[in-house]
Design a protein around this nucleic acid. Sequence first.
DNA 1: CGAAAATTTGCAGAGTCAGCAAAACTGCCG
DNA 2: CGGCAGTTTTGCTGACTCTGCAAATTTTCG
Lengths: 202, 202
Amino acid sequence: MTVEVGLRERKKAATRAALAAAANRLAVELGVEHVTVEAIAAAADVSPRTFHNYFSSREEAIVASIIDWAERLTDELEKRPADEPMWDSLQHVFLDSVDESADGHARLIRQLEMIKANPAVIASQLSALDTMRRRFAETIAARTGTDASRDLYPHLIAGAAGHAVKTAMDLWALGQHDRLLRDLVAEAFALVRAGLPEPGRS
Amino acid sequence: MTVEVGLRERKKAATRAALAAAANRLAVELGVEHVTVEAIAAAADVSPRTFHNYFSSREEAIVASIIDWAERLTDELEKRPADEPMWDSLQHVFLDSVDESADGHARLIRQLEMIKANPAVIASQLSALDTMRRRFAETIAARTGTDASRDLYPHLIAGAAGHAVKTAMDLWALGQHDRLLRDLVAEAFALVRAGLPEPGRS
DNA sequence: CGAAAATTTGCAGAGTCAGCAAAACTGCCG
DNA sequence: CGGCAGTTTTGCTGACTCTGCAAATTTTCG
């Protein structure tokens, strides 16, 4: 994949990363509504017009890190042993991606709070997660011999896994700091793998 | 809930409905990018400024029918017998909402195609579906004695059910016209309820 | 009817975003 | 090197979105 290593490609990647980082940082620091494209561009040392060559909206830049995360996770998923049960692979990949340091937790909470505060950013986040889900479905289809354009399975399991992680994070950020995020994610996976049986029924 | 039946309330609801209908119709007919707020407002016989009193973005108006759908479904869900297994209630409510007429199918396909064609509308759709998911989670929590602000269960099952329906629809619209949409939805539910076992494994 | 409350509207202003063409830059071959 | 070809950056412009504010209009209710 990443075979193009010319100066040109590296510069493009760097510009994109700088814009995404600036957008995210400013959104967290100042609040989304106080961040303009002009300010993001200035922070990344490019013209406002260039910003729009990389991102089609301010919100897209703010949540660009989700796409990067998704790319890393897809790579990880592809590296899992081919004979490992699909659910185990997914759980492994997602659990490994959770930063358990105190600093990581603090950052994550700030992220989620910033996103939650603005409907347009929420929509962009969901969009990014949906893109991630589609990538996952492709990878899963390839590994399980299913067809992402015809079979429900790869989409359903990718969606279920992604949603389990999102739900665990959202609930955790909402006040379950007494529990480890890791454990909450694991519990969500367990529930979904069990077919979500109704609690308190035989 | 809907106890306010004064002229004022009825007019507001009518204006909102007219704007949503106009926005959706124009988006399907002309394509999303060729629809301006001005045109929507004109079609609903109000000023452009009034449009923004009802919807905070063009896309929100275009997908407003999803919110209406969600409201109807939540009502249906609340009406299900309290002792019915949760999964059965959900499956029932969603399956009943599928319009199986040829005309309904054609409309649904045009809808999905219109949405798919524009990233901003996709994001708004996901946002609306997320709102629906949250409503469902509240209702489910109330019925299963769980707490939507602490427990994973209501969110996970609401998300799984909603995503099952969305996946079935998307795949169906993509070319599975040989199969009944109803059957695809039922199959998706069955897979999720079974915990998404890997196909072709013992 | 007439006052109080809510809704609609016009206007102004800040901001987003895309198309276009010129300027600046990078890669590469002679 | 030098310079051409292909890419990226940039400024400019125009259409459009969206919000705040205050005036005008409409509805409600005593």
